[in-house]
Design a binder for these strands. Structure first.
Length: 293
DNA sequence: CCACTAACCTGTAGGC
DNA sequence: TGCCTACAGGTTAGTG
């Protein structure tokens, strides 16, 4: 489901409710998602206060009062939602609204302004996973990630260094989280279209002999940044099931130039191309064969 | 190290 | 309607 803009949208939806909230209770409805929950996971969250939220690439990070960080990756179908807790008669006993099939994790939160709420993690395919660690350097998931595309250290020079000698096609190179962190199948196609670069072009072709980035690589760095910024502003993309935490859908999908637009005319001004779909390492790539070279 | 494939798991859309 | 296949926003493990 979620690439960088969707994960950032989720974070922004969670932040106002969870920041400052104390975790009163943790329920794991199974012992694993894609991977087992780490040892002592539920116990370590219980009683802690979520101080701040952050995002690195496609990872959500919850900084806890205990000094630890709770990490969550949404995989393809992971989502968070809030649910009211309905109290039963006398008091103290309640029915948590966690009856849905794929609700795997429930956190009972005592929030500063919104009372007691359940925060529910749901994930049909269970490609998501969670982790807990003291320092970011201790997390194998964060290790080796490339620069944040919207951060200061991301630029064409940085990309050139990583593309140097790379025979892999641009599509694969941009999907590689060690090169740039946070792009996925949608935004790779979109960024390449913005820069008029063919997804099949070997990555090294965009690096000059001197090791400097070509003009086209500069254009690509811009394309990556602008498409992500615009998508975040639009609240992400909703294709099948992506929902922000409040249940609303993003609307960037209406502005896709190529993704999921096979057979449609290329939106580049003056271009008469028709969007094509090809398979690259088993996944769909969309591009314009006329204005992307 | 690089490049590619299969695997993980469930749901849905489309063809017949 | 049912059955079957292909495909879906991601990452890791295994192969050569």
């Amino acid at each position: 489901m979620p690439e960088l803009p969707e994960v950032e949208t989720v974070r922004r939806g969670l932040a106002p409710l969870v920041e400052g909230a104390r975790i009163r209770k943790v329920t794991l409805n199974r012992k694993d998602l894609r991977f087992p929950f780490p040892e002592g996971f539920a116990e370590a969250l219980t009683g802690a206060t979520i101080e701040t939220t952050a995002r690195r690439a496609k990872y959500l990070l919850f900084r806890l009062s205990t000094g630890k960080t709770w990490l969550s990756h949404l995989g393809m179908t992971g989502s968070f939602r809030f649910a009211e807790i309905t109290f039963k008669e006398p008091s103290r006993y309640y029915e948590p609204t966690i009856d849905e099939k794929h609700d795997h994790v429930v956190l009972e939160l005592e929030t500063p302004k919104d009372g007691v709420l359940n925060l529910i993690y749901s994930d049909a395919r269970r490609f998501g996973f969670m982790d807990l660690f003291a320092r970011d350097e201790d997390s194998s998931y964060l290790e080796g990630l490339g620069p944040e595309p919207l951060g200061n250290s991301f630029n064409a020079e940085e990309m050139a260094e990583r593309f140097k000698g790379k025979k892999a096609p641009m599509k694969a190179a941009l999907l590689d989280q060690r090169v740039v962190a946070g792009l996925g199948n949608i935004y790779v196609s979109e960024a390449l279209h913005r820069a008029h670069i063919l997804p099949t072009l070997p990555a090294a072709k965009l690096v000059l002999k001197t090791g400097k980035p070509s003009q086209r690589l500069e254009l690509l760095a811009d394309g990556v940044r602008t498409v992500l910024i615009e998508a975040i502003e639009a609240g992400g993309s909703t294709l099948r099931d992506f929902r922000a935490t409040d249940g609303s859908s993003g609307y960037f999908q209406h502005r896709f130039a190529v993704y999921d637009r096979e057979g449609e005319p290329c939106p580049t001004p003056q271009c008469r191309g028709i969007i094509k779909r090809i398979l690259q390492s088993g996944r769909s790539t969309f591009y314009c064969p006329v204005c992307q070279r």
